[in-house]
Design a protein around this nucleic acid. Structure first.
Lengths: 244, 244
DNA sequence: CAGTGGTCTAGACCACACC
DNA sequence: GTGTGGTCTAGACCACTGT
């Protein structure tokens, strides 16, 4: 029923993760169709050569990803995939890229400025402290789709506009070892101003999606604050929510 | 350092949950300020009289809620609370209510209709099958804030308009034993139509936030499909995202 | 070095669903 | 009953951090 799996017990990758990765691949590749009842975790653990707690941990990760449901007395069942992935801790650049589109970026500004009171509060730095301001125009399929304004602590920025046009801000931060861990977002809407209409190639007064996001690393330090506007006629946010 | 906790080992509530609930209460009440280093999980477990795996499980739940961060070799540290709650599996009614506002609801329609092809696909029923359509106007602080259109399988609806104006759709479903487990949402924006402007007491052409949501129970069955519009000048969605 | 959290194991008892 | 997942325990080894 299940393709064999060879575990590498000397790998730094935890066993439970190796197991769940394997099962996830098996499920998403369609080798086990939705509705199928899994072999019990006990037998599965024996077959793979891991203990029951380890097996359970792997299973729990599949539950968290919405790939299976478990019911006491019944078993573990593969569900039809319903989860939409986006609006995670990824950037618009990543979203478009993995969506098959070809995003391009134009850096409109990349400069150091002195933070005013409001901005300093957002970034949790001292008022007046210099921060970096980045303004970018993101396009997909040849049309502008979003104007993105980001503010970052000066220490995190050591790239130039050219690099930024190729890689996406989040990818660059990650490559520099920044571990983004959490973000809070506020999504709203408003009408486009005249300049926004021109920039995004939209009719005057058309609706824009707005998003403000503050991103933190795993110490709780602010990594970035962004204020973005999207052409609502061509972009939406998709999310999945799971009960706790 | 920690207030004492008496565990009820005969309670159906799992020990790990009793522990994590207690610790969460201690943290959110401010008895342990942000930045504090916790006692080690071993000593904490001994003190509370639970095994280390149980203690770890309780701790992990605090991590999942973004209340603490754990670092190997260092310890467990309380972080400043950053998580915003809403946009979970709750309804606008619940959101407003817990936000201290006093929401009111006006039921504009509550009727059984025959589903067309598109709607049947959304609800995963046979085309032509009757479904229930609910249209409501939600107000807060005396002003309209959202027009909400929902479609549900006929079997789930046994309430009347009056009940619906008092309780909120999600609360009613929950009270009837429906276990909502997952939802997928698409958030967008567009300009208000003439009738929407009138209904929501907004200027013509103003921006609306739109949200389409499909909710599933834990079997993966569709519970509800909703298409809502919000007056963007008075409502936003707030979310927290955590790196898996 | 000592202390922390991260991983893994072996075994036990329980609640629940189905036969 | 039998088999499932849910909970809990006791103990072990490891990787990492600070001194």
């Amino acid at each position: 029923m299940l393709p064999p799996l060879v575990l590498d017990r000397n790998s730094p990758v935890p066993l439970h993760f190796q197991v769940s990765q394997h099962l996830e691949q098996v499920i998403t590749s369609g080798q086990i169709p939705p509705g199928t009842l899994f072999t019990s975790e006990i037998e599965l653990g024996e077959r793979l050569g891991v203990s029951r707690p380890t097996m359970r941990r792997a299973m729990q990760q599949l539950v968290d990803k919405g790939l299976v449901v478990r019911r006491r007395g019944i078993g573990t069942r593969v569900v039809r995939p319903k989860v939409k992935r986006p609006m995670e801790l990824t950037s618009l650049f990543d979203d478009l890229k993995s969506g098959g589109q070809s995003p391009t970026t134009q850096v409109l500004a990349l400069e150091e400025i002195d933070s005013d009171e409001a901005l300093a509060a957002k970034l949790e730095v001292k008022p007046g402290e210099p921060v970096v301001r980045v303004v970018r125009l993101r396009s997909a399929a040849g049309r502008p789709i979003a104007k993105m304004t980001n503010y970052l602590p000066t220490g995190l920025v050591d790239f130039d506009a050219e690099t930024l046009e190729e890689q996406g801000l989040y990818a660059l931060l990650r490559a520099r070892g920044v571990q983004m861990h959490m973000a809070t977002q506020v999504v709203g809407a408003r009408q486009a101003t005249a300049s926004e209409s021109r920039l995004l190639d939209e009719p005057r007064g058309s609706a824009l999606l707005t998003m403000e996001r503050t991103t933190y690393d795993d110490h709780g330090t602010v990594v970035e604050y962004g204020s973005h506007v999207y052409a609502a006629s061509r972009y939406t946010f998709e999310t999945s929510l799971m009960r706790s």
